[in-house]
Amino acid sequence: MRSDVRTLFFAAAFGTTCALVLTAVSRLAAPYRSANEKAEEMRNYLSALGVPFDEKASAKALIEIFDRNVVVQTNGRLRIYAFVPAGVSQEAMAFAVPLAGMGLWGPIKGVLALEPDLRTIRGLRFYQQEETPGLGGEIGAEWFVRQFKGKKLVSFTGEPGFRLVKKGMPLDENSVDAITGATMTSERVQTILRDVAAKVAEERGRHDRNE
């Protein structure tokens, strides 16, 4: 009986100490970590939009480039990042919309860049994901995202959507190869893309009415 009480007491004291140490370290590191995460997000927006920038630029420089070239506007449900090249033109050269959704093991976040027609994909980046390394984790790899460039967010009948199809199946301008061995991740990415396609279609409707 006494030893049980001692065990409990020890476990409580030890656990509390560990928790305190972890809290302190995490609080101290938090501002630096979140600055790095923010810069990482911006780097992805810039590279998806095709804004020229130095790969090794510091967090501060990235924020500056971002503020100079990118105009952020919120339209209804959708946040749009327009690439208006500083000092070149007033017309937006590209648009980007954020991607978010649940992956297999955790949230997936990314950015989808579109040409000014809001139909053609200009670039795709995933900057936060915890998919299985080597399988689903490949959504962050260059070969996977490269496939999307030039594809359309609408099918040839005009329906908004996107498909990830099994490798070897015929591809059209509305689909790309899924990842072999990562069916669950591929399905979730497809859902995220369809979700965005629907929102973009809404936005396109508004766009067309205005013009």
């Binding site: 370290v25 630096y32 970590r33």
Partner: peptide, 9 residues
Amino acid sequence: ICFDQILKA
């Protein structure tokens, strides 16, 4: 975890 946090920072 401490090391990981510091590395991230």
